[in-house]
Design a protein around this nucleic acid. Structure first.
Length: 453
DNA sequence: TCGAGCTTGAG
DNA sequence: TCAAGCTCG
């Protein structure tokens, strides 16, 4: 008997741990619910709801393969080695199969499991190219995205991207035992807008590839348009893999890896950014503990005014686009990528609040909360990250609004009181908590500690 | 060594 | 126009 331990890979397709375990004989699956750990990791209630629905769906999918999914609740990652050892004993299992994760606590958890004497086999399915596999000629991690991407594309072009097949059913012709629904006993926020299944993820992907990807580079920056893939919640929990995404993309657009300037390659870029941030995280584990990537960032004198932070959290900064974006996050658990940049820039550069505060707040509300991507994005905006925004580049929230929500269509969704304003008027702040020009100059001074040379 | 090339702009 | 540099080959 083998155990397949599911973590952030809640899928039966393109899942090497599952497929390879099944090749070795009978399999039982396990998922550990870790409420206290999730609390420490600021997992959003809406993501917990999405996890609950996803594991119930996974249990059903596994049942169709004749595999039982045991869902066990413990407090912390630290409790898993014992729990897993007990389970191995009970099932008389010789090996545990799992897919790798990139975060430091997760990696340490796996080490502790192995130290417990459990034969834990770890497979790589989180990235298309494994962390540490995309390096400069000096053997170091790239510090700039573009050369990383060039190297990544080169390697991927030589790769077979066929996803792993789902395993064959274990006991043919056996009846499907419909598993009892599992409930996670934690505060939850309804995630029903996002159907929690592999099928739903595939539908999002197909719709995106059929209808949107060709215009992605032209439309993706406009939050009022439906133009992005909407795959982030699925990628965050592994209901779909980036390999599946790229494979499907290449079937439709065989020259997708050619580094052109079109919608297809712009979207490939996004997948590569995801990998870039994951590689950085594995090679710099302390990023997961709040370290600035750029140590000069330690010298930034954050002002951290709680009143300003509260206003930002509640979408009451006075800047219509920022406030609408924060409402989108609070109400739906998701925020358009362009707006994440605008809000992150505003918090760090206009309000001079530590990016970690914003990172945490986002994590607490995002259905697609993912440490590497969230941290990478925040440190990009705060100019402390790897290949980050230069510190002197400060988004003007009014110009961003004029450019990317020209008719105020997005703003109007979340602030009907402004809907009657003209296209010209709607972008301007009403009782702003800080004035752009003043804030900009202060930020330039405070952030000048990042000046190089 | 040196030069090409820099995600998501702003005053 | 400017760009408060630097990475990578």
């Amino acid at each position: 008997m083998q155990i397949v331990w599911f973590r952030k890979d809640l899928r039966i397709h393109d899942n090497p741990a599952l497929t390879l375990a099944c090749q070795n004989g009978p399999v039982t699956a396990v998922y550990f619910v870790t409420p206290l750990q999730w609390q420490q990791h600021d997992v959003a209630p809406i993501q917990i709801d999405f996890i609950e629905k996803s594991i119930n769906q996974l249990a059903y999918s596994l049942a169709t393969l004749g595999i039982e999914l045991i869902v066990e609740t413990v407090d912390l990652f630290d409790d898993i080695p014992d729990a897993l050892a007990t389970l191995c004993k009970k099932l008389n299992a010789s090996q545990v199969f799992a897919n790798s994760e990139v975060e430091v606590d997760e990696i340490n958890r796996d080490i502790k499991v192995q130290q417990q004497g459990i034969d834990l086999q770890i497979f790589q399915a989180d990235c298309i190219l494994n962390p540490g596999q995309v390096l400069t000629q000096q053997g170091t991690m790239f510090k700039v995205f573009t050369p990383f991407k060039i190297n990544w594309l080169k390697q991927v072009q030589a790769l077979d991207l066929s996803p792993y097949c789902k395993p064959a059913a274990q006991n043919a012709a056996s009846e499907i035992i419909i598993p009892t629904a599992f409930t996670i006993d934690r505060p939850k926020k309804d995630s029903a807008y996002w159907l929690a299944s592999e099928d739903a993820a595939q539908t999002h992907l197909v719709d995106f590839l059929d209808q949107f990807v060709e215009y992605y580079h032209l439309k993706r920056d406009f939050p009022a348009k439906q133009a992005t893939s909407m795959l982030s919640p699925y990628l965050a929990l592994g209901l779909i893999s980036t390999k599946q995404c790229l494979h499907a993309l290449l079937l439709r657009f065989p020259d997708a890896l050619d580094n052109a300037k079109n919608g297809v390659s712009t979207w490939v870029n996004e997948l590569v950014w995801r990998e870039f941030y994951r590689h950085i995280m594995v090679l710099n584990p302390n990023l997961g503990k709040g370290d600035n990537y750029n140590k000069l960032g330690n010298q930034i004198q954050w002002q951290n005014d709680p009143k300003l932070f509260k206003a930002w959290c509640e979408g009451k900064t006075g800047y219509p686009l920022v406030d609408a974006a924060m409402q989108q996050l609070i109400q739906t658990g998701w925020m358009h990528n362009r707006l994440r940049m605008v809000c992150a820039s505003f918090l760090t550069k206009h309000l001079l609040i530590d990016w970690r505060w914003g990172e945490r707040f986002f994590k607490q509300h995002l259905i697609d909360g993912d440490l590497a991507s969230n941290n990478g994005g925040w440190q990009w905006a705060a100019s402390t990250g790897c290949d980050a925004q230069p510190y002197f580049r400060i988004f003007n929230p009014i110009i961003q609004s004029q450019k990317f929500d020209p008719n105020g269509q997005f703003i109007s969704i979340y602030n009907q009181a402004l809907a009657h304003l003209s296209d010209k008027q709607i972008h301007f702040p009403v009782n702003p908590i800080v004035e752009h020009k003043v804030a900009r100059l202060t930020a330039l001074q405070l952030f000048s500690v990042l000046k190089k040379g």
